[in-house]
């Protein structure tokens, strides 16, 4: 069980690192938000899942899963609010329109 937890944590760290690299490399706000959502969804999922498995079945595992559910519900809302504000203020994405 511990080995599975360590593997999950390392995978999560890998995705967090990729998200940080994307934050540095990508050109504008809209594309950078994809890097943030990559970090938030799969990276946080793998890392917190690994920590929950390390705790073993019990109340601590449930609590970590509550934090995970909270992250999954709230992070898209925050990203959407920021990007909508950027779009309404008039930051133009370098993108082609598509019906």
């Amino acid at each position: 069980m511990d080995i599975l937890a360590v593997v999950l944590i390392v995978i999560g760290l890998f995705f967090l690192t990729v998200g940080a690299i994307g934050m540095l490399r990508l050109p504008d706000v809209f594309t950078r938000s994809h890097a943030v959502s990559l970090t938030d969804s799969l990276g946080a999922f793998c890392l917190l899942m690994g920590l929950a498995l390390y705790q073993g079945v019990g109340i601590n595992m449930l609590k970590i899963l509550v934090v995970l559910a909270l992250l999954f519900l709230l992070n898209p809302v925050i990203a959407h609010a920021t990007i909508r504000a950027a779009y309404r203020v008039g930051v133009k994405p370098k993108a082609e329109e598509h019906p």
């Binding site: 995705f15 490399r25 990508l26 809209f30 993108a95 082609e96 598509h98």
Partner: peptide, 22 residues
Amino acid sequence: SSLHITKVILSPSLPIAPKMIH
């Protein structure tokens, strides 16, 4: 899609083609 985005970000030429979809 995470694996796909990881491949895009880590590839040296950064092959992105952003688009807005209605």
